[in-house]
Design a protein around this nucleic acid. Structure first.
Length: 883
RNA sequence: GAGGGCAUAGCUCAGUUGGUUUAGAGCGCUUGCUUGACAGGCAAGAGGUCCGCAGUUCAAAUCUGCGUGUCCUCACCA
């Protein structure tokens, strides 16, 4: 660096140092004798682009990993991406659609070729973006959940659980997305209150021969298009209104099919009409009632959400069109009693926003009972800690009520389920086609390879990402608990911290714990730090449709990565949602500039060995040494509790207020004068400590200045400079300086209130014979001090700091009346305060029960107040006299 | 419907086992400064019934109960 500009320019600096770090492989980690510190990245979608949530999350990850590195640990941050089957597949489908190509027409092989092409083209952009943010990931270890080794791990895991008897194939009511043509898990369904209608329909009682009588019952439904699938009408057995229906049969309107009236507690008597139409094929609860009463299941809606032949009427119509039409038909047939406006919660697909259709379907499930119990124990025992702790409650609730995990997806982009069907409909589960053939031949020796048909479905993406903390190190381990962990896995597992959003606590965090316990017998991480959700200034979630999400790369371009990182951390107190405001990034940029300019000053000092150290400089050095140690201890404490924004704020104030505003001002020589070598050396050394302290948060500017502050060799970096350690310090030093600083502020206030320029030298009288840090007081307040017994009759302003009295001599600048008024106000305040303290002290029970230290403190308060009152009264008196 | 969180300055939040807190910080706001590193700066200020009520205690922002407001998770009534 030759000459320093008045403003810091991040752009030139950041690319330079990132390239330097990469060139020297500073991010790379290999197992060694040091203590490991490991983080695996929450893998972003491979085709995703960086949003503010990523910025927050990865900034926190990077702060932790850089801190650990400087603490002397062998830090390893494993990056990678997730294949995100539904999201990626729908993007590829959309792209092909633009070209007029339909997935079904080109077939699986061809589609996957397109998908991989898309992945190669768009995949990993996000990892490039993370480099811009300064993330110190070990890029040599970059993983992808669908790379061959990790896919193998997924398949092996499936085979393992299948053979263990925990994976089964079952017909279940699933949440069917008629647009994506796949089942989605319960967690991927969003319930939204939706305006609909409540149709009251007459079902006539059958005469026993399929002919209606004149008697009828009324049911209420929001889905009249499903009446053709009805299997029964159900009433509550306790409902007296419906006793007469017992044993009766009724006729479905329009198609006149006869169905029985049954009784079940499930039906609420006071909801609707108390009569429920049971449609087992198209409603989860109805399905369960159907199971209990052995009712037939009639499926009349197909995969695309259209009515099929079994419906008999409206065949081929979309479910919503059919609804409109059938209402009209029912009305014309005289079955519609009334229509009510009704708002009901309707499930929508998270991905496609299509209304979810409950659908019976053959799916693969993983039993959750044992896994959930294990994973709950991991957290309850504290082997894995959640920060903030409140998420343990949520976690427990879920784990105690975990349902079996539907792991199959009707998609092509993902790991294909390794189940192979024989011509007779039975199947075998094996890791490869060859093994499957062997297994099949064991059942039937005449089976040939071409007779086997592999299951069409792929596995849920989470079924691969739950292995992430294991598979990134040793992909052979999942599915093989007996396999000896390789060198990497043995060294890096369990990882230390996981930083992620609370929205995927069940999808991902809980399941990683399950897999970790099952295959490693050990929790995958010690701490899980849940960040908040990034919202905009007024609390709305960031979303594309609202357009309230800034592009992080633009922000980095404008303000620099360090500023963006600071900005995100400043507003992210642990566990709370983040209200993003660009003002905070500006604050980050201002901080960069402050650091930059303080360096300009320090670097600009002329050093002269013949100059003696000033007393003020000596005191300032002594003080800042203590201050630094105090702050370092606080910062360590904050880090240990994951209070990253507090750690940052502590350093921020240490740098800006203590170092720049107090220390540098105290040691700064007069204009044009040189500084002595001892002071210069201390000043540079403090500066370097500050750079190291703040480096994990602001990696770029700290490297730039660290490289310049002393001669460095190629290959040296602040990244591996040891974190400053707190030294023992004398609290009295801090106390004395603090008192002095308060006095400086008081003098400045006198100036400010009376419009006296800072450079105008004032004469300050101090009652007594000693005062700490006098040279600091004189320099910083711009005063000449005179220690004295009495103030006498001089004209001026008296004031108190703590219980010490001061007097500034001022000729003709004092408005006595104003001074009296001010003193009077002070006096009243003190008297009121004294009253409160005395009330306490005169309370016998207080004196009898409170600890001695507390009472002592109250007495001190009393004494201080008394002395202040005394002095104020004297002051008022003398002012009045002078007036 | 079930469970959980939160409520302190205009905004975002600290406030550790109740007592050195006469409630703090950052930002914002007001006033004054071409102070020679920085106007992205310097200095001085204003600003709070600690959501309400009741209780426990010598002592409550802090503990308990009730209420109010707000947010989240899960489930979802045809």
């Amino acid at each position: 660096m030759d000459k320093l500009a008045a403003k810091y320019s991040a752009k030139e600096v950041e690319d330079k140092w990132y390239a330097y770090w990469l060139a020297h492989k500073f991010f790379h980690s290999e197992p060694n004798e040091k203590e490991p510190y490991t983080i695996v990245i929450p893998p972003p979608n491979v085709t995703g682009i960086l949003h503010m949530g990523h910025v927050l999350n990865n900034t926190l990850n990077d702060v932790l990993i850089r801190k650990a590195r400087m603490d002397g640990k062998n830090a390893c941050w494993v990056p990678g991406t997730d294949h995100a089957s539904i999201a990626t597949e729908s993007k590829v489908v959309a792209k092909l659609k633009e070209q007029g190509i339909r997935k079904e027409d080109i077939g699986r092989e061809e589609f996957l070729r397109h998908a991989w092409e898309w992945k190669e083209e768009h995949g990993g952009i996000i990892l490039q973006q993370l480099r811009k943010l300064g993330c110190s990931c070990d890029w040599d270890r970059t993983r992808f959940t669908m790379e061959p080794a990790l896919s193998e791990a997924v398949i092996n895991t499936f085979v393992y659980f299948y053979k263990k008897g925990w994976i089964y194939k079952g017909v279940r009511m699933v949440n069917w997305d008629p647009e994506a043509l796949t089942a989605v898990s319960d967690d991927e369904v969003i319930h939204k209150d939706t305006k609909s209608h409540f149709y009251h329909l007459k079902y006539y009682i059958s005469d026993g021969n399929g002919k209606p009588t004149d008697k009828f019952l009324v049911i209420a439904t929001t889905r009249p298009e499903t009446i053709m699938a009805d299997s029964a009408i159900c009433v509550n057995p306790k409902d007296e209104r419906h006793f007469w229906l017992k044993g009766k049969k009724v006729l479905i309107p329009l198609i006149n099919r006869e169905i029985p009236v049954i009784e079940d507690d499930y039906v609420e008597m006071d909801f609707g009409t108390g009569c429920l139409k049971v449609t087992p094929a198209h409603d989860v609860h109805d399905y369960e009632i159907g199971l209990r009463h052995n009712l037939p299941v009639l499926e009349i809606i197909d995969d695309h959400g259209k009515l099929n032949e079994k419906a008999q009427i409206l065949v081929g119509e979309d479910r919503f069109v059919a609804r409109k039409k059938i209402v009209k038909m029912l009305e014309e047939a005289g079955n519609l009693v009334k229509t009510e406006e009704y708002i009901s919660p309707v499930g929508y697909s998270e991905r496609t926003d299509a209304v979810i259709e409950p659908k019976l379907s053959a799916q693969w499930f993983l039993k959750m009972d044992k896994l959930a119990a294990m994973a709950l124990e991991t957290v309850e025992s504290g082997r894995t800690q959640f920060i903030p702790e409140k998420y343990v409650n949520t976690y427990r609730h879920w784990m105690e009520n975990a349902r079996d995990w539907c792991i199959s997806r009707q998609l092509w982009w993902g790991q294909r389920i390794p189940a192979y069907y024989l011509p007779d409909g039975s199947f075998v589960v094996e890791a490869s086609a060859e093994a499957a053939l062997k297994a099949a031949q064991a059942k039937n020796p005449s089976i040939k390879a071409e007779d086997l048909r592999q299951d069409e479905d792929v596995l849920d993406t989470w079924f691969s990402s739950w292995l992430w903390p294991i598979s990134v190190f040793d992909p052979e381990k999942p599915g093989h608990p007996e396999h000896e962990p390789n060198k990497d896995l043995a060294y890096y597992y369990p990882t230390n911290d996981l930083v992620t959003g609370p929205d995927i606590i069940f999808f991902w965090v809980a399941r990683m714990i399950m897999a970790g316990e099952e295959f490693m017998g050990k929790e995958p991480f010690s701490n899980v730090y849940f960040t908040g959700i990034v919202r905009d200034k007024i609390g709305r979630k960031m979303s594309k449709t609202l357009g309230n999400s800034p592009n992080p790369l633009d922000l980095i371009e404008n303000y620099g990565a360090d500023a963006v990182r600071i900005g995100m951390l400043l507003c992210s107190s642990a566990g709370n949602d983040i209200f993003y405001d660009e003002a905070q990034i500006k604050q980050g940029a201002a901080f960069c500039n402050k650091i930059w300019n303080s360096y300009r000053l320090v670097k600009g000092f002329a050093v002269d060995a013949s100059v003696a150290q000033t007393p003020a400089a000596k005191l300032a050095i002594e003080w800042f040494e203590a201050k630094l140690s105090e702050a370092v201890a606080q910062v360590e404490d904050h880090y240990s509790k994951f209070r990253i924004s507090d750690a940052l704020m502590t350093i921020y104030k240490l740098f800006w207020d203590d170092y720049c505003s107090w220390y540098l001002e105290a040691i700064k020589p007069a204009f044009g004068q040189p500084v002595d070598p001892e002071t210069y050396k201390a000043t540079l050394s403090f500066f370097e400590s500050l750079l190291k302290l703040i480096h994990p948060v602001m990696p770029f500017i700290t490297e730039e200045l660290w490289q310049d502050i002393a001669p460095r060799k190629e290959g040296e970096t602040i990244m591996y400079a040891p974190t400053p350690k707190a030294q023992a310090y004398d609290a009295k030093v801090l106390e004395n300086f603090q008192w002095t600083a308060e006095t400086v502020n008081a003098v400045r206030a006198v100036r400010s209130q009376r419009g006296i320029a800072p450079k105008e030298m004032l004469h300050l009288l101090i009652k007594g014979s000693t005062f700490p840090c006098l040279p600091i007081l004189e320099k910083m307040a711009g005063v000449e001090v005179e220690m004295t017994g009495e103030f006498g009759d001089a004209q001026g302003v008296g004031f108190m700091v703590r219980t010490q009295e001061f007097f500034v001599k001022l000729e003709g600048l004092v408005n006595a009346e104003q001074e009296i008024e001010k003193a009077q106000k002070d006096l009243e305040h003190q008297q009121k305060f004294l009253q409160g303290v005395r009330a306490k002290l005169s309370n016998e029970r207080f004196v009898a029960n409170a600890p001695a230290a507390v009472i002592e403190n109250e007495r001190k308060k009393e004494a201080d107040a008394l002395s202040k009152i005394e002095s104020l009264e004297a002051k008022i008196k003398s002012l009045k006299k002078a007036n």
